[in-house]
Amino acid sequence: MVAVVREKDFLYKNFLVKKMIYNQNESYWKRYVRNALEPKVIEHESWLENEYANGTKIYDGNPIYSAKLHNQKAIRIIQEEPESDTRQIAAWVEETEDEHENKIEELVISLELTRDTRKLALELIKEWASKISMQKMLLLIEEKID
């Protein structure tokens, strides 16, 4: 069944319009991810600093949150403009590399933010931070989202 979303379900609805709301929205994700994971699991928060070379911050939610984890894994959350009347959340895992050319496995979550999508995202993040393999994570994503 397709989950219906109403206008009032969106959280931080104007995050792409007002910088203050955007900053609060960023803090919101930090708070929730930190609550979901053991402190020792997060190695480097905001490792994908969202700014141009001249230091200008990019307020596009792409990503709104990123972190490198202790086990050669990473997470990235992309928050999209809230505009849909059905639940919007997608996730996938991929191999990438860090600044030292070390291979890392990354969980990417793209969503429109509601309490429902936040809950799903945090469930996926908690599983990803454990010893789960990419293959099993793909199955879990299918089970929970697709």
Partner: peptide, 29 residues
Amino acid sequence: ENGGIFAVKKKTFKVKGSKDERVDIEVLG
């Protein structure tokens, strides 16, 4: 227009409503 970007940066432009169809930019170094 803003001096370029330094690594590491990743941008994903996902087709809305799709499972995972997207265009990615990765500046790795």
